[in-house]
Amino acid sequence: MAVGAQAAPVDKGSNQHRQEMLWGYGLTSIWLIGFLVFSAAPIIIALFISFTDWNPIRDGAFWNARGNGVSNYKIFLADHRYWHAVWNTIYYSVGSVGLVNVVSIPVAVLLNQKLRGINIYRTIAYLPAIMPAVATVLIFRMMFQPSSGFISWILTRLHIQCDPSQLTCNPYDWLSNPRLTMPAVILVSTWALGQTMLIYLAGLQGISGSYYEAAAIDGANTWEQFRNITLPLLTPAIFFNVVIGLIGAFQEFTKFIIWSGGAGGFSGGPSDSLLTLFTYSYEKGFEDNLMGLATAMAFGLFVLIGIFTVINFVGQRRWVFYQEER
């Protein structure tokens, strides 16, 4: 990151210095107060709640809750639905982040070409990324309807599935077959690849043209240039996208709630195939009123995110290639 000009050094202890300190504390205290009240205090409350069996309907305020030691942690660690949710969370995160990144690189390369109206294409390609998740899921749920949806229509035309207008035909059931629900959600996540793609685009533009010129002189074709220059120089961007993407995917909530029928219903979808750690924690907390258990579960998610982030940072040394600083 570009480092800007620093504040000019001032004499310590002078009146001016004291003034500056006051201004510094004054301005940053806006954030500091917010941090203490809205972040630090809740963390402490979270720790407290996770060792109680707080049920807001029964107990009222959280300080009336009865402590129950580590039993919340014991309960969820022994809960096979929890481990199923762990698996689903990893399945979705790795699947969607992998797929989105694999698709985004060629798209970014394409949008890095000198084409007429390239800004319009970039604008359009990025558009889905900012669309509200609820409406997006509704559109795709309709497109994935087993017999009347667009996907079914295509599959029937391609003779991959039988004709749904026949009495005995059972089309692919993207919405209630537990083996197909998660793949459908993962496929849909490619629609909003704009975020990832933009990072690659930025990465591509940071690659100096001189590398390609040198390669062209050596007679390397386009693929070889991509393989030997673009991809290695893009690894920092890939790393960044994978880390940020995984952290985001682990915390995906809206998509799963809406895909499995909206909040207030069952958060897991068919056979819990769409149950993730976040939605399970929400279900325990806000549907079942088991706030202590839900908070303990959320710490489990925290740990999982931590593990994956550490793996990423440790693993990066093997494959991320950093350009020398200019």
Binding site: I45, A46, A61, F278, A298
Partner: peptide, 16 residues
Amino acid sequence: IPYAVMMIPQYAMFIN
């Protein structure tokens, strides 16, 4: 810090 961890304690604080 994931929001999942903050969701319930923030709720507890705002509500109670």
